[in-house]
Design a protein around this nucleic acid. Structure first.
Lengths: 219, 219
DNA sequence: CAATAACTCAATAGAATTATTGAATATAAC
DNA sequence: GTTATATTCAATAATTCTATTGAGTTATTG
């Protein structure tokens, strides 16, 4: 805690933020919180981790200015501190995407269809939405959909995709979105839809970005 | 290295990037490399750290995709992997700036004049440069200036500021820039210039950002 | 006012990170 | 070739981080 120069003191604060972002589980928490405020309980369930563990991660994230907490009855509800947190996570993803061969390998290695990787931009989707030419698929689990989603989106959780193929209009293009840019469920959904002959693409990023871009979140 | 789900594998890669950003010394290295490629030797001298230590940090940064290295004669020259690295560092600074009271405290606590904190934007500076109404001061040490700077800037290292006050035109506004947005030398310079009656402000960010915005770097 | 649920706290052991030291390697200069 | 310089490597000890466990708090429910 003893920092002689203000420069070092500042860099220590910046490092605290970055270091706190540097843990997979905490990134997952940010991904979840990007969709809206959540209780410790629910987050722990989503991550499949012990509550005490998640609680500690959340507290270190609060100390680093990444999240804020508020008690609501018997729950403590955490939310992202502000939009800059998602921006920082995206900036980090961008670095990894550009410069780590491993990232490319993981994405390409897991999904066989190359074209399933080509995303559609938000602007493009907005255009085509006006003409009603496209079905927007929210492939997150039903409980996450229920807690907030983009208006007009159809909730088809990945687990139910096969069962609900018949209800999808094969004449329309399909755009699938998920939690965030690297939520793999949208990759998987598009891959499987294409095998079935649908014209499907995934949105370049997920719920929080699209909601932030002016599409109100329906609860 | 055993990652069952591709999702976790991806998040581990992202975490690697963030974790590697999470150390003050490595952030300082990025600040230095933001100004241009540098040898291990020079970086170690700038940071005042043992060469072996800096070398190890640089190597971990290379593994995380933050920097690239190239041997040039007996030197090994490191550079930032790409522009996304600086963007990520800025995004992290933004989070700290918005959400950590400590950052505000450090900046405001160290410099007494509040108005010295109000930065001028790049766009504003560009406008006023056309009318030749402003002196642009590069307050970095002479060796860093020599390795690359913004054309038209006057190099007045902080250490020589007092001695060179007489050579500055008191009729013109002064804009001071430094290494990056949080390089404290520009704060200090503006503060001291104001005490002497100059109309001085600092640029909202530093060398790399301004150079990236289309102002070629002169060597 | 118990009983329960949600969360935090404290303590601990294991793992990872860091700085330091001195040896090893690669290149250039002589 | 020998020497000097720049960098990396390897080994170590000190520190920090992480997950786990169980106990302690706060708030709701009956």
């Amino acid at each position: 805690m003893s920092s002689p120069s203000p420069k070092l003191a500042l860099f220590e604060q910046f490092a605290l933020v970055a270091k706190t972002l540097g843990h997979p589980q905490r990134l997952e928490l940010i991904e979840q919180l990007g969709q809206g405020p959540r209780s410790v309980d629910l987050l722990a369930e989503k991550l499949g981790s012990p509550i005490a563990n998640v609680s500690q991660h959340l507290q270190s994230m609060r100390r680093a200015g990444l999240v804020a907490a508020e008690r609501q009855g018997k729950y403590v509800v955490y939310r992202l501190a502000d939009a800059s947190v998602l921006a920082a996570m995206q900036a980090i993803q961008r670095v990894a995407e550009n410069n780590l061969a491993e990232v490319d390998k993981i994405v390409r290695g897991y999904f066989d269809q190359r074209d399933s990787l080509e995303p559609i931009t938000r602007a493009e989707l907005s255009d085509r939405l006006r003409d009603d030419m496209v079905t927007v698929l929210d492939v997150r689990p039903a409980d996450e959909f229920a807690l907030g989603h983009v208006p007009g989106a159809l909730n088809v959780p990945l687990a139910e995709l096969d069962a609900r193929l018949a209800t999808l209009d094969p004449e329309k293009d399909i755009v699938a979105y998920c939690r965030g840019a690297y939520c793999v469920m949208s990759f998987e959904a598009v891959s499987r839809l294409r095998v079935q002959g649908f014209r499907a693409r995934r949105l370049e990023d997920g719920m929080p970005e699209w909601a932030a871009a002016g599409n109100a979140v329906a609860s």
